[in-house]
Design a protein around this nucleic acid. Structure first.
Lengths: 124, 124
DNA sequence: TTGCTCCTCACGTCACGTGAGGTGGC
DNA sequence: TTGCTCCTCACGTCACGTGAGGTGGC
């Protein structure tokens, strides 16, 4: 049974975060690794969850928002009311992402302009 | 002389932030409105600075980073060393923005998928 | 024993949120 | 006076950063 598992420091190194950050997500209920004595053991599924958290973080989602988003991937036995609520959340996120996309494109243009001004001022 | 100016609450309402946030940016040296007695008076230039701060914020920049970015727009009398340093910052931001763009596109696809799954579960 | 990684507190920081308590002009 | 907006502290919160101090196996 070749179970692939990870230590906390392996994940921290891979994703360029601190172990404190990973423990914090556990504290907030986003991760729940198994233990070997006191040591945390992370499964492949735990690693995926961490990736999703970090993607959300890069996009400015709060920990609670990321938690909700991750739970969207696990259908579970949702009733209609829950589903409608989730649908609303999804649509809200889509709006925010649309705005962020615009912002990024504007900033990219401006950074290119600033870059070329810098370069010409440096006479390269 | 039709000088266009703004009160703190006008700007707060326009950009959907609190007055506390605006005062905070002043505290951190990003804004420097004139005063009329104790009241803050914001010029068109102040308003532009605030817009730039908020754009940086939406993209996950710290206040200090936004401050630096804004100063990129004001050429001033930069020496070569300063310019080279700024160029590096610009290129770092461009890398981060590239990653964020990718993340957003991935999340958008996943949200669309989640949305259609929700909709079909709700039988709309 | 040294060196490595792991652990649990627990205080500090950043970017504000949120009252508390007060002033000023229509 | 009431109602509105403005002000200055100042403590609280969120997402961690950063040691302090200690354990466990090669």
């Amino acid at each position: 049974m070749g179970m692939v598992v990870y230590s906390i420091s392996e994940l921290a190194k891979e994703f360029d975060i601190t172990t404190r950050t990973i423990r914090f997500y556990e504290d907030r209920g986003l991760l729940n690794p198994s233990r070997e004595g006191h040591k945390r053991i992370y499964s492949v599924a735990d690693r995926v969850r961490l990736m999703l958290i970090l993607r959300g973080r890069r996009l400015g989602f709060s920990v609670d928002e990321s938690k909700e988003l991750i739970e969207l991937y696990n259908p579970k036995q949702n009733n209609k009311h829950q589903l409608a609520k989730y649908l609303l959340k999804i649509q809200e996120k889509q709006e925010v992402l649309g705005k962020q996309l615009k912002d990024i494109k504007i900033l990219q243009k401006e950074l290119k302009l600033a870059e070329s001004r810098c370069l010409s001022a440096l006479k390269i």
